[in-house]
Design a protein around this nucleic acid. Structure first.
Lengths: 111, 111
DNA sequence: ATCTTATATCGCAAATATACGATTAAAGAT
DNA sequence: ATCTTTAATCGTATATTTGCGATATAAGAT
């Protein structure tokens, strides 16, 4: 690899890629689904639901948080996570708009 | 790691994750953008545009193709790629619907 | 037949991601 | 003060991704 060439792309391309990367593992999709379905924020419940060790779940949560897709607050000895809907929508619309706009001009591709 | 636990999640979760993975690199976002902007399918043009070696671009194209996001046909000594809009829309709507549906019931999260 | 052009594939090195057990930290309960 | 519970972090093993040069392939041009 020599060195990550990721910086050589535009910020928007990098942002979109980072968003996609955060969602690029089924465990993280599953976590987002669980968080979205509850009105209460959960934490250790996710560990019970997923077929993964506590430390692994914690790591996935950290990645989702770093990517800005979820919020987390410490609440005594337990911590509480939930979807960051704003960030999610922002990325989601950026994502769809990028391609939907282009699609209109270009309905019939050559292959 | 011991062994990929990815299979232990639902097919839909895996599909979504694979779709996201295909988009999880800025180079692949850039490639999709280029493909979407042209009326003609390109190939080596992408190599000129991206700051990456020909072999690397070819690899990224292969990943996008394997993920079903683009189509590719061989055309003499050159090959021709373009966005697979159908697959893209399918994933995109699955993606947004999953979270938009949940979002309605759940507008105000706890943190 | 050989040369050229355009791509794909192979082989390899380096970087990242995934997963887990063990340990640490933090706070409420006893 | 100690114990328990919950979650984060550390260390480590393994797998996967990223990237490139070199090589192979395929077809049109000479």
């Amino acid at each position: 690899m020599a060195f990550h060439k990721k910086e050589e792309f535009t910020q928007k391309e990098q942002d979109l890629a980072n968003f996609a990367k955060a969602m690029s593992h089924p465990a993280r999709i599953a976590i987002l689904k669980v968080l979205a379905q509850r009105n209460e924020c959960i934490c250790g419940e996710i560990v019970d639901i997923l077929p993964l060790a506590q430390s692994t779940v914690s790591q996935h949560l950290k990645e989702l948080k770093n990517a800005g897709l979820i919020n987390g607050t410490v609440d005594g000895p337990r911590s509480c996570y939930c979807i960051n809907w704003k960030a999610f929508e922002k990325f989601n619309s950026e994502f769809t708009s990028l391609f939907n706009n282009l699609k209109v001009k270009n309905e019939k591709a050559c292959c």
